[in-house]
Design a binder for these strands. Sequence first.
DNA 1: ATATTTGAGTGAACAGTGTTTACTTTTTGA
DNA 2: TCAAAAAGTAAACACTGTTCACTCAAATAT
Lengths: 217, 217
Amino acid sequence: MTVTVSSPAERRRNKIRARILSAAERVFAREGAEGLSIRRLAENIDYSPAAIYKYFKSKDELVDELKETFFELILENVNRIADTSTPFAERSRDCVATYVQIATDKPYHYAAAFAGESATQAPVDGEPGFAQSKKGQAFMVLSGMIAEGVEIGAFRADIDPTLAAKSIWASMHGLAMMIVHIPTFPAFKAEQDTMTRDEFILFHADQVIRGLEVHHG
Amino acid sequence: MTVTVSSPAERRRNKIRARILSAAERVFAREGAEGLSIRRLAENIDYSPAAIYKYFKSKDELVDELKETFFELILENVNRIADTSTPFAERSRDCVATYVQIATDKPYHYAAAFAGESATQAPVDGEPGFAQSKKGQAFMVLSGMIAEGVEIGAFRADIDPTLAAKSIWASMHGLAMMIVHIPTFPAFKAEQDTMTRDEFILFHADQVIRGLEVHHG
DNA sequence: ATATTTGAGTGAACAGTGTTTACTTTTTGA
DNA sequence: TCAAAAAGTAAACACTGTTCACTCAAATAT
């Protein structure tokens, strides 16, 4: 193991790259991809616009990196809960809820992570690289958890875990997107504002998971 | 009832407005909001770019009209099925499935309908005008159907139809968005390609509705 | 230590975008 | 017929992402 993998020049370069990403992250979190312009970003870090292209091939590539980092955050949190020893019922529910929570904490990140699919990375389809991407890993945590539910006997035996995981992921994704795009979603048209956003997320998670459970009778 | 509500000039104006919208619809369906530029649109209909601003305040307003028309289409189709006399179980399932079908038939429209919320119209939040919007009407069809399910005894009695409708809408929305953003979604990482997109939509609809059904035992 | 090559950084330009303004032409209504 | 209103436009403004030719400093090789 050589420790000298990075030359001083290389380290300096990485530092600047990180500074660019950090500045980009700040404005992106507040205003999304539209608000993030190369010129504005360049001004923020006292460089010329053209300089940024020495560190990133395109704006898309830069934003893609923000997205991947974001899904890293989701993965970490979901994983942390999945490894807990709490009863299966609430553990699975909490995973679903946490996913939505984080997604809605950084609405622009979450929306962009699915919107773009800018062909640069985004190996979310076909096969190649999906299992390696953070998005893919998060998906596998989910399908693994469902498989556990089937083994335990909590979930119906006739369901295909992978298929069920896709369905559940879609339902989570839907709530997250709703909240992201319609800021007042769970409370919109609130005839009784008896339920907060977080309560609704849990309600939804319960609803979704109930679809998997065994029906006695 | 006066029949002379529209002068010749007015009718001519509406005709041109419609021609603009029609041309916009064509390119929007194919390439989305990004591909639809005012200049390109103007060229298509042999007008100067500035002319379009005599008919629409902004590009957003123009696109908003495309979105509303699109949701009109969804509403019509869902309504047609909701008014059927087929058994409740499949009728409700078909409504959900149809929503997703149409959404994914015009992916750009559906994504844009939620993405923008361009503050122009988009009364999807708060209260004012939501019930009047096509989106709002579609939602009410859904919650009405759930109320029917509760009355009939098919769904659990302790659920609030409005709340449940929001949850189900989110789940539908999620699948639609997944398919829209990840073209190969239901089949991605297809270890067995034993299920087509349409089959998966039905599977998901079942899953979602099962969360509402009564558990015997 | 000197020459050479590599890479960082830049100003200016290209090709787009939505939108506005001042202006001309056409159409309408009295 | 003539003034007023509306339709349509060319040109500009203020942006956008991106590229190109260029300079200058730093690392490398001789």
